[in-house]
Amino acid sequence: MSTVLRKEYVVVRDDYAGAGKVSSDVKSTLSSIGIPSPVLRRIAVACYESEINMLIHAYGGDIILEIGDDGVIHMTFSDPGPGIPDIEKAMTPGWSTASDKAREMGFGAGMGLPNIKRVSDEFDITSSPEGTTIQLSFKVT
């Protein structure tokens, strides 16, 4: 598979004011090349939740958007730590380690990772103290 579109973004730790910027750009980029709305909405949910996780739980991170010539949309979210000690717990709806500050702003519902998994066609997560990587793919048809 070769890549027909690739974009990279940086998420800054604790940048609550900038939260959602990457997701908005990803959504408008994909909309401009004709990706159908139902797929766009799924990607927007996954991207927003991942972006939020990076700024409230991790030390920021990088997001890569890629579309292959097979039409599948791939997204990779990688951060430099501190890692998720128990992925199984983190995947449980309602379970959260968000700070009081994050909760005051409406984050910390414990629905981030479950939402991401639910809307993706493929979901893979690896985590260690050195960082967490989430790889997602979305079929357009």
């Binding site: 609550y16 004011a17 939260a19 959602g20 910027k21 997701s23 908005s24 709305s37 909405r41 949910v45 927003y48 939740e49 939020i52 702003m105 409406g106 984050f107 910390g108 519902a109 414990g110 629905m111 981030g112 479950p114 939402n115 639910r118």
Partner: peptide, 28 residues
Amino acid sequence: DLLSWVMGNGEPGQVWITVQVHLNVVAV
């Protein structure tokens, strides 16, 4: 008022009622 809950369950075209007044509400 829980943003991830709204993000995961809201539908296009709905009127969203909340008491959240932070900037992030706009993005959602």
